[in-house]
Amino acid sequence: MLRDPWLIDQLVKATTESFDGDVFRATRRNLDPTTPSTSGGRWAPVDGPAVLYTSFERDGALAEIAYHWRQFTPRPTKPALVHKLGIKCDRTLKLIRSDIQALGVEMGRYDEPNYRRTQEIGAVVAFIGCDGLIIPSARWNCENLIIFTDNIAMDIDFERKSVEEVDWQVWARSAGMLDDASQE
């Protein structure tokens, strides 16, 4: 994968920080909540770095899964599981909205599934050795932590603190993310 030299220069100059705290991840049943994705997403291209998408807020994790599941036909009816995980990342890069815009992302379209530039950013963040990326959620008013699992120290383990079963459709309706008129 070719990487934008300008983007590498910008991100390698950015200050990193450590993160030691709790995050939330919503999953389907029978999925290990620490299993990373390699199929691409907002911050990782297909066949790019392995990533674990998490949120600093429970509702942020639910908003992410509700966004994706409501697009399926038929829509999944089984509950989601919301996992609370403890994680420690040593080299985390935090980008606020103005940083993301300065890196070439059109913030007026941030919530749309046009991922090319954000995927380029994520790939470079992983390439320069960061194990985490803190960014604003596109789905909820909170921050998300994207974990580049290949860059986490081998002795780091996720602490599984709790798991909660949630009827994601009931939650999505109450959050204004789902209406019955769009139900198949």
Rank of each mutant, 00 (worst) to 15 (best):
H83T: 11
R160E: 08
K13I: 05
Q101T: 07
R29C: 00
G108H: 14
L178P: 05
K88T: 14
H68P: 04
S18G: 14
D131W: 02
A61T: 01
T149L: 09
Q119N: 08
Y115V: 07
L11N: 04
R97Q: 12
F72Q: 14
L178T: 05
L85P: 02
P33N: 09
D32R: 10
I156L: 08
P76V: 11
D9Y: 01
I152A: 10
N114P: 03
A172S: 12
L178H: 10
T92G: 04
A181S: 13
K84P: 05
F127D: 10
L95D: 03
G108M: 11
D180Q: 13
L103G: 06
H83N: 15
I65K: 06
Y67Q: 08
A80H: 09
F72I: 06
T149A: 07
R25M: 13
E164D: 13
L95Q: 02
D47P: 07
N30Q: 12
W6K: 00
H68A: 12
E106V: 08
E112F: 13
I128E: 08
R58D: 06
R3N: 01
W69C: 02
L93T: 02
A123L: 06
Q119K: 11
A14W: 01
M1K: 12
D150V: 08
A175E: 04
D131Q: 06
W171A: 10
P76K: 14
G40L: 09
V105M: 00
S174P: 04
I152S: 02
I156P: 00
W6T: 04
I96K: 01
D167T: 03
Q101H: 04
T54K: 10
L31M: 13
P36C: 03
G21Q: 09
T34Q: 08
A126N: 00
E159Q: 13
T77I: 09
K94I: 08
F148D: 06
I96E: 07
R117M: 13
C89M: 12
E164L: 11
T118Y: 05
I147M: 09
G176E: 09
W43H: 07
R116S: 13
L95P: 05
G60M: 11
K13E: 07
N141I: 10
R97C: 07
G176R: 12
A14M: 08
D20I: 00
R29I: 10
E164P: 06
R58T: 02
V23D: 04
T73P: 01
L11P: 06
I156K: 12
R109Q: 14
N114F: 15
R116C: 05
A126K: 01
Q119D: 04
A153D: 14
I156N: 13
T27E: 14
C130D: 06
I65L: 15
Y53C: 06
P49F: 04
P113V: 05
L178M: 05
D22G: 02
I152Y: 02
L52P: 11
S98V: 06
S174L: 12
V163D: 04
A50P: 15
P36R: 07
E184W: 01
E112G: 07
S37I: 00
A138I: 12
Q183C: 00
D22L: 05
